[in-house]
Design a binder for these strands. Structure first.
Lengths: 230, 230
DNA sequence: CGCAAAAGCGTACGACATACGCACCAGGGC
DNA sequence: GCCCTGGTGCGTATGTCGTACGCTTTTGCG
């Protein structure tokens, strides 16, 4: 029934004693790794570069981290920080939660590449999940309903953050609009051509923000239908 | 205004002539690469393994593919195939579209790792986007509304498929329920503890399917609010 | 002060993507 | 029949990566 508890998780939940080393330690390593990934992207994070930044030899890192996958798990736990306090009411609460989460993904775009959506087990990510569920306290929804709702919002935020983050990273939307217009012919892709002609892809200053607000409103509307129907 | 058109896209849209080689050609290479990624995961796809499967030398592949990134772009274009015909009516249409798309992700889970949500420009993915938009033909929604709606559904499908695919790949849900129950204490994560106590994470035969249906209904309810309010 | 355990690290290996340049082959013009 | 040209296949070699292994240095404790 209770099987082997993975070492990585025991460390994260404080069940394994912290190795009390000087100089190098897990926190410093993870913090430096996050800095590299934030600044130059996940691909730029190699054990060699990380060691260089820490002023140590590459192999020294392995005293504190079993392998690179474990390092990534630690980063995933640490990067999001603590979830914010939410305003009262399920809708303002979920909306604030969604926005805060989006900000996390904007600040650390690599999170979306590392966690392939694998259900999280570390305290850092579960704290956010807990906060999302808490936004629905006081509603008549069942536990299962609440979970599905939070999940749906989470997926939306992740999807939106993924393209938002890419657009912010220099991939200009202007190129995109132009390329779509160049390739899409009404006889092959009529609906898309109509969208393109209507200027959907034309860049605008607040495109990311208004898309986010709009889509989130749609999802939350769906939740309100659920609440009204009860 | 119109800047350089990337070589990869020119090939995909048929603007560059197909190199008429014998033996090796792009189609065979891409098909074999997809087979490897489907069977053994993206990590198992190396140029060396791919060449081995094709009975050629690794470097021969580079006559048909500029580099591995371009190979991945080709795979992303080819893997989804043609989108299905959709039933009439925006809601049945979007629902069928969402399910077909989920099936694509289940069949080729690596798609979600390769495309970081970067807006697609290849004909294969744009055909799916077009079909999703077409499901909303005949509704009073503006082009922008339609696009946002399809995007929201797309994000949900991607999120759901991501964890669904992982659960199918042997990561048993039983472990997850047990580990959550082991680590989550009500005083630290009360909402999550309540969810866990209610058995949310207990594995069930149709968990993936019912989550999908439920969440999708929520998102589509949001769309119906939009249509009703007009 | 002595010693065991822990921390740091140098070397080495196997996988990987891919630059470069040579060998082979087909087809077309003479 | 012969050569020449452009494309195709490939062998070699380079640099990067993660990390296994075992040695050396440091540290905390009795």
């Amino acid at each position: 029934m209770t099987r082997e508890i993975p070492r990585t998780l025991q460390i994260l939940w404080g069940e394994a004693p912290r190795p009390g080393g000087r100089g190098l330690n897990r926190e410093r390593i993870v913090a430096a790794a996050i800095e590299i990934a934030d600044a130059d992207g996940l691909a730029a994070l190699s054990m060699a570069r990380l060691a260089e930044r820490l002023g140590s030899a590459p192999m020294s890192l392995y005293r504190h981290v079993a392998n690179k996958d474990e390092l990534l798990a630690f980063m995933l736990d640490a990067a999001p920080g603590s979830p914010p306090e939410l305003p009262r009411g399920w809708r303002p609460g979920l909306e604030a939660w969604a926005r805060a989460l989006r900000d996390v993904y904007y600040a650390h775009p690599w999170i979306l590449q590392v966690s392939d959506g694998r259900p999280p087990l570390d305290p850092g990510q579960l704290a956010w999940l807990d906060r999302g569920l808490a936004a629905l306290d006081g509603t008549p929804l069942s536990q299962r309903d609440r979970f599905e709702v939070v999940t749906a919002v989470l997926y939306f935020v992740r999807g939106e953050a993924q393209i938002g983050a890419i657009l912010m990273r220099g991939g200009s939307m202007e190129d995109y609009a132009g390329l779509i217009a160049h390739f899409v012919r009404p006889e092959r892709l009529p609906a898309l051509a109509a969208a393109s002609d209507a200027g959907i892809f034309r860049p605008s200053a607040d495109a990311a923000e208004s898309s986010f607000a709009y889509g989130l409103a749609r999802v939350l509307d769906g939740v309100s239908v659920l609440l009204a129907g009860d």
